[in-house]
Design a protein around this nucleic acid. Structure first.
Lengths: 340, 340
DNA sequence: CTGTTAGCGCGTTCAT
DNA sequence: ATGAACGCGCTAACAG
């Protein structure tokens, strides 16, 4: 149906091979006059190389697979943008898959990318505590066949990637908060089976302990806005209504969770930060538009994505990188006058 | 390098054809005993069908291309999620391209999708006033070769899609605002070369005129957060500082722009809505976390994406659909006591 | 420098 | 019901 290279060759009165050489990058270029004729024919006929056929013949697809939990989550969409920027105009196309936090869907995505023979697979969702053996095996065989695996967040056996030092970052964040005067902390720890959740909560709690403090409460739940909303609501309901002359500071292991927590706090008639202070983690772009400004640990999300994209392009030379977040205190953790 | 179907066939002691029949959907199934043996061999060897080879042999890729302006923009990421939901577990993979609002990059994206022989292309960025002839020609030839084109927003010559009735929606929004007591409007009209921008602004202005009102100002700029920020800043600077006993209401042709405008307003020391009211358009999820709640015209963004995905699956039977937005007034347009 | 030809991995008629 | 053989569109050796 579509125009084939053969058609172009015929139209230009040259052989298939010659047409191939001029239209797609080859070592030495054919004669200028011939080249022009071929290009003209291609243009006239509206020729488009069949990427599938090229991939089959070249054994390389110029395809990269990105798996996220939810593309509508600012954390992931920002990373996705970074990846695209990193890929730049290399001609590499991005295949996107979302898992909705279901491990089976992540496996399915990887499986699908393997079928597509993507040159690389970027895993941006958090790794679980007990990593699925099936996933590991899959990734292993992908790598054996020359596939590149880049993991964002935690290091995964024998893969390159951008590691985020969640623990240290959380410790630093806790330190800043304590320095600013906070003493009574609650931790919305998210899903305890996700490394990201766990590391962030642990780092924070460790710092508290080392400072001689201990959390007023640690609440687990889903690693999402809704999860935090519910966890926070439950926590507030369970509180004795009289207590607290002193301001509470709620550390949420992600900004998205902080947003959910804030909603719960407000619905219960309390104010942020006057009644309860809130801190998040990530510094997603959304925070720019939220009032009060939410304190957080800033991660260069777009850059992280960009680095991942660049790693893909630098084929093989993919190194591991470690990034830490920077505490950024804004209004949401301002100490209320009269408190503390 | 990777395991081929041939390898599986050998391992199972059957022919290539038989292996193909059992592993990939064929009309009649081979004997059960044979099938099991083949499946076992495939499992043992870790076989993955080569999607490229399949595509070449079948002349169908199970690939869909989605082009957005910016995947980190909540408007687009929400639609993207919808598309993925719409595609469901059909096995269709999503190819993502971002244009950064540059028409040439949109063409490049379409060109690339055509090379990939995607079964369909979904265009979600706004169409321009004078549509690029090159794009139209490209799309035409894509369709001739059996490609499906789905446009979200405006109808585009001979393509299916989800049309958004921006004009009527804006009229209704204006009506609600007027009914609620607003009289003095400013329109941040965005890019006058984008149909979305233009239609929304025009619909709004038309309603004003019909009601005997006229806009205090119409300011153009980029159809983005930054564009709105700058436009609003300029407008505020240009105002005579004494005027305005009466509250102003700024209509932004998108929520993202509304967010930029609000920032500009606040930076100039004014409050929303006490000093200036603000309305947006789209009802992006971000609004849930913004204070004060921003009035807007609600569009079922995720559904729109989902419909697009479903249209792709229903091959050919793709119809045109028209959706209108629903005005939702929240705090950002609350009339300030003493005003009006 | 150009043309011929043999695969790339798989789906699918066509015989058997 | 199963197997042999051809073709999908293109690249890359090899010949000329």
């Amino acid at each position: 149906m579509a125009i084939r290279l053969t058609d172009v060759a015929n139209e230009a009165g040259v052989s298939l091979a010659t047409a191939s050489r001029v239209l797609n990058g080859s070592a030495r270029k054919p004669a200028a006059e011939i080249s022009d004729r071929v290009r003209a024919a291609a243009e006239k006929l509206g020729y488009f190389p069949n990427a599938q056929a090229q991939a089959l013949a070249r054994a390389s697809t110029k395809l990269v697979g990105l798996v996220v939990r939810d593309i509508a989550d600012p954390y992931f969409s920002t990373i996705a943008r970074g990846v695209q920027r990193g890929l730049g105009d290399s001609g590499t196309q991005l295949l996107l898959a979302s898992t909705d936090s279901e491990p089976e869907r992540e496996i399915e995505a990887v499986r699908s990318f393997m079928s597509q023979r993507t040159d690389a697979i970027i895993l941006s969702g958090s790794r679980g505590l007990s990593e699925d053996a099936a996933l590991l095996r899959l990734i292993g065989s992908y790598q054996e066949n020359g596939g590149q695996v880049i993991v964002i967040g935690q290091p995964l056996a024998s893969t390159g990637g951008i590691q985020i030092d969640n623990e240290t970052t959380s410790e630093n964040l806790a330190e800043e908060l304590i320095r600013s005067g906070h003493r009574r902390f609650v931790v919305l720890a998210g899903d305890e089976n996700l490394l990201t959740s766990r590391d962030r909560a642990q780092g924070f709690l460790r710092k508290l302990k080392r400072t001689g403090l201990s959390a007023v409460g640690v609440v687990h739940g889903a690693f999402s806005r809704e999860g935090a909303y519910m966890a926070m609501s439950d926590f507030l309901r369970g509180r004795k209504s009289e207590e607290d002359a002193q301001q509470l500071c709620v550390f949420c292991v992600s900004d998205v969770m902080a947003l959910g927590a804030i909603r719960a706090i407000r619905e219960s008639g309390l104010r942020v930060p006057e009644d309860i202070a809130v801190v998040g983690f990530d510094d997603i772009p959304t925070l720019e538009d939220v009032t009060p400004g939410i304190s957080t640990a800033r991660l260069p999300l777009e850059e992280i994505g960009r680095w991942a994209g660049e790693m893909v392009l630098s084929h093989g030379e993919a190194r591991k990188t470690v990034v830490a977040g920077t505490p950024v205190l804004r209004e949401s953790t301002k100490l209320h006058a009269g408190n503390q």
